[in-house]
Design a binder for these strands. Structure first.
Lengths: 196, 196
DNA sequence: GCTGGACTATGACGGTCGTTATAGCCAGCG
DNA sequence: CGCTGGCTATAACGACCGTCATAGTCCAGC
């Protein structure tokens, strides 16, 4: 999960591991001790690399996942919006299936937990940014393929929301059927919206 | 939130309060102590009413929300799928707005957190049931209005997933714009699918 | 070789967690 | 009146939490 090519530094391992754990258990239920252990790093190191503590670590994990996904999305969208959708769906399907329906999207997980006390925590803002990035990638591609600008933006939102929701449903039902249903409907909708 | 007509019993207050808190903070981050305090009930009472502890309380909270929502959905679907969709969206929009973007769907929240150790926890199974119930209500209505059976099932899944995902996006962005986008797209899609 | 800073190791702090146990209250019934 | 059983009150249990402090280890660059 979230593999990177070269021998990843301790810091990278911690961030990637945190993203993975958050995607399984949620943010509040994932302790810094477990994140450190999961990355085979000492607890003290987490506060060395992330002096602002858990908040910072969560923020970086969200951004990491956002970038990781956006990279794949960006590449596949070169072959058109339908190919992009398929890649987006395949990416999450792999995560869900490989984890035996235990992992989901860490960005969604962070979006769902209230700021414990203070204002808008950085991690939540990062999640909003990630969603917006994904939407923009999709919307731009739709527009390039002839969709009306407004339609493109609306459909992009629907795609991101539907995929996130579908992944959660798959976890609850321990089945990939929701993904199949969503894939079918979204693909038809894209084809009906673009006018190549 | 989740108001019921007559002076609610302590047990009902605890369940409704638990649903509300879970929808804000997630399951793992909501303590039994806080649930009791939120319902102005003593801690001991929670273990009196729910001897199996947190797991049971979470399960009942999920089922409670599922029923509460299904009731509204069932009623509005009598006026057709589009009216049902609008009611479904309005219901969640009210929760999101009234809570100042702090509350979401407790069913989604439970779906997202891994079983800590044991098998499939009861709360997760309850969440899957709730999703299936909502889908069935929508799919039946779509079929009644002329949708192909397969299309109806797929679209129903998409609607539930999209609404759940959209609510989460609204929380992250602290904006209702995602709900507007999703509403527009889903409504058009329903109209294109049913053939009255 | 030495030094300085990056990183690790360890342990502690006050607090909250889920859960259990036990004793007390008090309506309703005999 | 006494008793019973549903509910409350209170305290405790071991475990874990986020965070911080400090001392130890390592190695690049002088």
């Amino acid at each position: 999960m979230y593999v990177t090519k070269p021998s990843p530094s301790a810091r990278e391992r911690i961030v990637a591991g945190a993203a993975d754990m958050i995607s399984r258990r949620g943010l509040n239920a994932t302790s810094i001790r477990e994140m450190a252990k999961h990355a085979r790093a000492p607890l003290g190191s987490t506060y060395h690399y992330f002096p602002e503590g858990k908040q910072q670590l969560a923020t970086e994990a969200v951004r990491f996942t956002g970038e990781w996904t956006a990279r794949s999305l960006r590449k596949e969208l070169e072959a058109g919006p339908v190919a992009g959708l398929r890649a987006f769906l395949a990416l999450w399907r792999k995560i869900v299936v490989d984890s035996d329906f235990r992992a989901g999207c860490p960005v969604l997980a962070v979006s769902i937990e209230e700021p414990s006390s203070d204002e808008t925590p950085a991690a939540l803002a990062a999640a909003a940014d990630v969603f917006t990035t994904w939407e923009s990638l999709l919307a731009d591609s739709l527009r390039e393929h002839g969709a009306e600008p407004d339609q493109a933006a609306q459909l992009a939102t629907l795609i991101v929301a539907a995929v996130e929701g579908t992944v959660a449903m798959c976890r609850a039902k321990r089945s990939t059927q929701p993904l199949d249903h969503t894939a079918e409907q979204l693909q038809a909708l894209i084809l009906a919206t673009i006018k190549d």
